[in-house]
Design a binder for these strands. Structure first.
Lengths: 329, 329
DNA sequence: GTGAAAGCGCTAACAA
DNA sequence: TTGTTAGCGCTTTCAC
C-alpha cells in the first residue's frame, strides 16, 4: 500500500504538493496536479486517515450512546444523526451500554483517548457525574434524555406537557380511573411524564391511586403485559392506561386483548414515541409522536458546532398527540 | 492535554518506559512503575489513540454495514457483534446505507483509508463487485446475506430448508393455496426462501400460481398490508401466507385482521426472523427463528481472526420453526 | 507554485 | 531494567 511519499516520488514532486492536490487547499498548477493524479491512480494510492488524524488531532468520529438497540425509538433519531454527520464528514460510533454498566466507561474513554471528537448521549442511565466531568474538556450533547441543570446542551421535547395532553385526552373520553405505566422515575423523561399525568388528574379532580401506577422493570413488551395483569387485580379496575413508552403500551394492549377486554370501550390505551409498530397493532395505538429524525439531526448539528468551538443552545422540539383506534370509540 | 513526553519528563524516565507501563508489555521495576503512574495521575494523562493507531497502523474499528436500522432483525445481530468486538478491544462503526446508495462508498472508503480494519456486511443490496474487489486487500465477512461463490466468508442459515419447513408446516395444516410474500429476489436470501417455498409446493403436488406471489417493494409493515390486499383480489383466494420477513408478515396479519378474516382458520400466516414484535401481534405470529446474537458474535469472531491473518471458514447456523397462534388451530 | 523540514503521539528495535 | 532513536503518514509553516 503506497503512501504519500511514494506518490510524490513517482510524480516527481514533494509530498507537500501531493497533500495539496489531495485536499485542494492551495492552488497547484494544473500541470503538476495532473502528474500527481496520474501517480495516485497508478499506485492505487489511498490516503491514510491514521496519519491525517494524528496530524490534525481529530478523529472525525462522533460517539453516540444509546441504552439498547432493541427500542425502535432510537432508530430514527440515529438516522437523523447519521445524515447530518455524514454531510459534514463525520462518522458515528454507535455504542450500546445496556448489557454492561462498565461498558460505558470503555466508550467514554474513546473521547478521552481522542478516538471520538464528541458525544451524543441518549442513554438516560448514563452516569451524570461522569458526563459533567467529561463535559469540561469535551463536547457533549444530550438527546431526548438530559440533565436538568443547563450544564450540558440538549435537544428534547416538553415531556410534561405531552403527557398532560395524552392523559387529558383520556379524560375527555370519559375515563376517570386512569392507570400509568412508568419506568425508572430517576430518569428525567419518566419523571416529567409522570408529572404531566398527575397534573391532568389533579386538574380534573380525578383520583390518583398508588395501585394504578406500575413501575415497570424494563421497557420490553413483556413489562407492559405485567403491568396490565397487575391493574386487572385492582379492586377498582382502571378504564384507561397511559404508558411512558410504546413498547410498554403495546405489551399492555396485547394483554388486554388476550383477556378479551374491549379496547377502547372497556380499556383505552395511550403510548409514547410513535414507533413504527404502533400503527400495526390491533387495534392501532394512540401515542405521542416526537420528531425523532429532526431531534437526531439537530443534536448532530449542535455537537459539530460545539466541537468547532461555537456556543450552542438547548432546544425543545414540538410533539404531537396521535389518536388511533386504542382511544377511538 | 498532556502527552507521553510530558509524563516521561515528570516521572524522570523516558517515553519508552511510560509506554511500557501503559501497555505493560515488558517488565518494569515496580519503583519506576510507581513513579510513572504518579505522573500519569498528576497530569491526568490520557494516551492518545491517534498516535498509537498510526504507529501500529490499525484503527481497531470494525465497519458494520446494514441496510436499515428500522428492521429490528439487525439489532440482536449487532448485539452479538458488539459483545465480541468489545471483548477483543475492537469497536464498531455502524453504517446504514439505506437512504443513499453512494453512501456505501463513503463507508467502504473508511476501510481503504485505514479508518476501519475490516467489514461485516449485512446489507444484501451491497455492491458485490466492489466487495469482491475490496476483499483482495481487506478482511470482509458477510452475515446473513452472502455471495454465493465462496470468495468471501459468511455466516448464515440454510434459508432454503427453513422456508421449506415453514411452508410444509402450512401444508400439514391442510392449506393447499399458499401465497408467498417475497422481496427483491436478486438477494440471495430471498431467492433461497422462494426456492424452499416452491420445493414444498412441488413435493406435495400443490398449485403454484403467479398471482399468489407478491413481490414487495420494501420490508415495511405497509408492504405486507399491500400484499394481502392483492391476494384478496385473486379469483382463488389463498388460505395461507408465507412471508420472507416478519415485518411483511406482521403487515399481512394486520390487514387480514382489518378485513375480519379469521386467523388461522381462514388465513394462516408464517413470517421469518422472529423479531420481538412477532410475539406481540394479535394473534401471535409463527415464524422462523435465526440465532441472531450468535450469528453476530460469530461474524465478529471470524472477522477478527481474518484481520489477524488466520484462515476462516464460512458457517451455516441452525434455524428453528416457531409455531404460534397464526398457524395454530 | 513548490519544496524542505518539523512534528502530531505513540511504539518497537536496538543498545546499554 | 531502561534509554535512544527512528518512524508510522500525514499537514503545515516557512522559505524561495
Amino acid at each position: 500500500m503506497a503512501n504519500i511519499q511514494e506518490v510524490a516520488r513517482k510524480a516527481g514532486v514533494s509530498s507537500a504538493t501531493v497533500s495539496r492536490v489531495l485536499n485542494n487547499t492551495t492552488v497547484v498548477s494544473s500541470r503538476t496536479k495532473m502528474k500527481v493524479e496520474k501517480a495516485i491512480k497508478e499506485l492505487q494510492y489511498e490516503p491514510s486517515m491514521l496519519g491525517r488524524n494524528l496530524r490534525k488531532s481529530e478523529s472525525r468520529l462522533l460517539l453516540v450512546l444509546i441504552h439498547s438497540f432493541s427500542n425502535p425509538f432510537f432508530s430514527k433519531i440515529i438516522n437523523g444523526i447519521e445524515d447530518h454527520s455524514i454531510a459534514n464528514n463525520y462518522n458515528i460510533l454507535l455504542c450500546e451500554s445496556d448489557s454492561d454498566p462498565q461498558r460505558e466507561n470503555i466508550f467514554l474513554n474513546m473521547v478521552r483517548n481522542k478516538l471520538a471528537d464528541g458525544v451524543i448521549s441518549m442513554n438516560p442511565a448514563v452516569d451524570m457525574e461522569m458526563m459533567l466531568d467529561l463535559a469540561e474538556k469535551h463536547s457533549i450533547i444530550f438527546c431526548s434524555e438530559y440533565y436538568e441543570n443547563d450544564a450540558i446542551p440538549y435537544v428534547t421535547i416538553d415531556n410534561e406537557a405531552a403527557a398532560y395532553k395524552a392523559v387529558k385526552h383520556l379524560i375527555k373520553l370519559g375515563n376517570e380511573k386512569i392507570a400509568f405505566i412508568s419506568y425508572e422515575e430517576s430518569f428525567v423523561y419518566a419523571k416529567q411524564r409522570r408529572n404531566g399525568y398527575e397534573r391532568a388528574l389533579r386538574e380534573f379532580g380525578l383520583p390518583m391511586r398508588e395501585e394504578w401506577i406500575y413501575n415497570a422493570g424494563g421497557l420490553d413488551f413483556q413489562d407492559g403485559v405485567q403491568a396490565v395483569r397487575k391493574f386487572l387485580q385492582c379492586d377498582e379496575r382502571p378504564t384507561a392506561v397511559f404508558a411512558v413508552s410504546d413498547t410498554l403500551a403495546i405489551g399492555a394492549l396485547k394483554e388486554v386483548n388476550v383477556r378479551g377486554i374491549k379496547i377502547p370501550d372497556e380499556m383505552a390505551v395511550v403510548g409514547f414515541d410513535n414507533i413504527n409498530f404502533s400503527n400495526m397493532t390491533n387495534p392501532t395505538l394512540s401515542t405521542v409522536s416526537q420528531p425523532m429524525y429532526d431531534m437526531g439531526y439537530k443534536a448532530a448539528s449542535m455537537l459539530i458546532d460545539s466541537i468547532q468551538g461555537k456556543a450552542v443552545d438547548s432546544v425543545i422540539m414540538d410533539h404531537e398527540l396521535i389518536i388511533r383506534e386504542s382511544t377511538l370509540s
